[in-house]
Write a protein that binds this DNA or RNA. Structure first.
Lengths: 211, 211
DNA sequence: CCCTTCATGATACCGACGTACCATATTGGT
DNA sequence: ACCAATATGGTACGTCGGTATCATGAAGGG
């Protein structure tokens, strides 16, 4: 037998190529030959590791979300050990904004997949749908924890605010993507709402909030 | 010469067919032949009125936004003559939510065009980019007017709130589209923020309008 | 040592799609 | 009434993209 190669590693390499070329020319414009050229392999190889284009696209989606999850995790780790709830929330929200090339590609492709899934039931059945729910639950928990610690407005509805923050971050991400809004203004809007939800380390609410 | 036909009307008819088929199978999957079949004309006719597919797509975008603008206008008119600021804002925001087949199609296609425009500079140069700015300005003016009339929190930043409301409505529209969220929960979140911004109770516009 | 199995390359096939070309019916103007 | 411009149909052409087929190299096991 020939040099037993790691299939999973090869697949990841090819999926990476898919993400790169799709990020440049758009997901709709990507072809098997483009992916092969970008990965530096032959067309046959792409066929070998992913029998069909549909499977390649599905794997690409999974790879994309995995990479993004890892990136968010790194951002959280970079925020230091045990940061405050607000710092954690900020890190989560700002990590999803397309501020550099990698996050820009992620935002573009994730949006493309989402729009595709509306009219493609096979894609809609893929596992990327539950990701937003997880983010919503995590953010809700974070806000509730902050409320319990007296750091956030106790009268706020944590889940509603979590939904709102994620919704704003998502649309503004797209606005940044199309060049309609600057990252700075998007961050300013998010900060405005965080200022509203989190009590500003001040004296007044702290007395009422802490047991 | 043969029966001089109204070119603009024909173009509108074909563009309508484009919207219908694109709403069903996705904008990426639409072809000239599909549009021709949907419109009940020959492929040659589509070529005759739109020389190229690109021009057909551009015209379709314009037609889509025009129809949506008319729809929002109708919603506003249906809200009665001189409704209160909150009722107007509600009508604007709820009109953009994909609650029926027409708005669902609009949301899907507008999002598709927007995502396409990220990697297609010819599409990015089309006139649909300034539409969001217009909505933002209109909503900001509405909020400022409400503040002036003592109906809204005077300490709120009108433009920031306008941006936030539109952003939330947009993302939630997409969430409804992909079946991740119900229209009711989206409306509830928007109402929550309107309750926060507008100070007077729900029947304010009635009192201000009649008595 | 050779055979089997995995990995990879080159290329052919087939359908779809956008576009171009040719043809023809219809009717308004003089 | 005839010409010419307009409107519309049918169809062919070239290309591109996904998939399938054939072929070959490379190594580990009996």
């Amino acid at each position: 037998m020939p040099k037993r190669v790691d299939h999973e590693e090869r697949r990841a390499q090819i999926a990476e190529a898919l993400i790169q070329v799709a990020g440049r020319r758009g997901l709709h414009a990507v072809g098997m030959r483009d992916v092969a050229a970008e990965a530096g392999v032959s067309l046959r190889l792409v066929q070998y590791y992913f029998e069909t284009k549909e499977k390649l696209l599905f794997y690409g989606l999974r790879h994309l979300t995995d990479r993004f999850t890892a990136r968010v995790g790194a951002r959280l780790a970079a925020a230091g050990p045990d940061p405050g709830p607000r710092a954690t929330v900020e890190a989560l929200l700002l990590a999803s904004l397309p501020t550099d090339e990698e996050s820009r590609t992620f935002h573009l492709l994730y949006s493309s997949y989402a729009i595709l899934s509306v009219t493609d039931e096979a894609l809609a059945a893929q596992p990327f749908i539950d990701n937003p729910d997880a983010a919503e639950n995590a953010l809700t928990g974070l806000l509730e924890h902050a409320q319990g610690a007296g750091l956030a407005d106790p009268d706020a509805d944590a889940r509603t605010e979590a939904i709102s923050l994620l919704a704003m971050a998502a649309t503004m991400g797209t606005s940044i993507l199309v060049g309609q809004r600057s990252p700075e203004s998007a961050i300013a809007v998010l900060q405005h709402h965080l200022d509203r939800i989190f009590t500003t380390s001040g004296t007044a609410e702290r007395v009422a909030g802490s047991s």
